[in-house]
């Protein structure tokens, strides 16, 4: 077993263990943070497959972006203080249902794995960097997809800005009664 294999199994262990934690953890925050390790392990795999740009993008987008979003969502939507962030009890029917789905997916994946024709030809030349190739193909072959994605993101951005802006429009003609009752000096015991 050479060094590469050791590292591979190390990453695999991290992914499986943290993935299990994501599924089995009763605390949503623990699950979210365990997901971070899963994503990191995945990035490690990409790096081992010499696609360094993909690996770094994985960290950038999933760890730095989506995971933070998930954690923010969890923290902001549920009660932060007082109530514990835990998943509720799951019925036995749901267990059976979940198990069935898992078995079906596992079977499907194994079938796919055994039946697909894998390219077994070794790569004769290790590319120095995948980033140039990605850049060229994004701006030539896949320019339409790239631009559509960009427009979609722009729309999302404008929408977000509009939603954030909305309460300012409301407050300009806010009825002062509501506020002034809120601002009364309350003497509480």
């Amino acid at each position: 077993m050479n060094l590469e294999a050791v590292i591979f199994y190390l990453f695999a262990l991290i992914i499986v263990a943290s993935g299990g934690l994501v599924v089995l953890s009763k605390n949503i925050m623990h699950a979210a943070f365990a997901l971070m390790f899963t994503l990191f392990g995945l990035a490690g795999f990409y790096a081992m497959l010499l696609s360094d740009f993909l690996a770094v993008s994985q960290i950038m987008i999933y760890v730095g972006g989506i995971l933070v979003l998930i954690i923010f969502g969890v923290m902001l939507t549920s009660k932060i203080t007082g109530v514990e962030l835990k998943t509720g009890p799951i019925g036995k029917v749901n267990y059976l249902f979940g198990a069935a789905i898992s078995v079906i997916i596992a079977c499907g994946l194994s079938l796919l794995f055994t039946n697909s024709k894998w390219i077994e030809k070794p790569v004769d030349k290790i590319p120095d960097s995948s980033i140039n190739a990605i850049g060229y193909s994004l701006l030539t072959e896949y320019i339409l997809v790239f631009e559509v994605a960009a427009v979609l993101l722009l729309i999302a951005l404008i929408g977000a800005a509009l939603i954030a802006h909305k309460d300012q429009i409301i407050d300009s003609d806010a009825s002062s009664n509501e506020i002034s009752t809120n601002n009364d000096i309350k003497i509480k015991e």
């Binding site: 943070f33 971070m36 360094d52 740009f53 770094v56 993008s57 960290i59 950038m60 760890v63 730095g64 972006g65 995971l67 933070v68 954690i71 923290m75 120095d128 960097s129 980033i131």
Partner: peptide, 20 residues
């Protein structure tokens, strides 16, 4: 690493998670 700068931007987001 030949995408060193990109790597640094990406990895610095780890600090965010640590802080949260």
């Amino acid at each position: 690493l030949n995408i060193g700068l990109f790597f640094i931007i990406a990895i610095s987001s780890l600090a965010v998670l640590g802080i949260v």
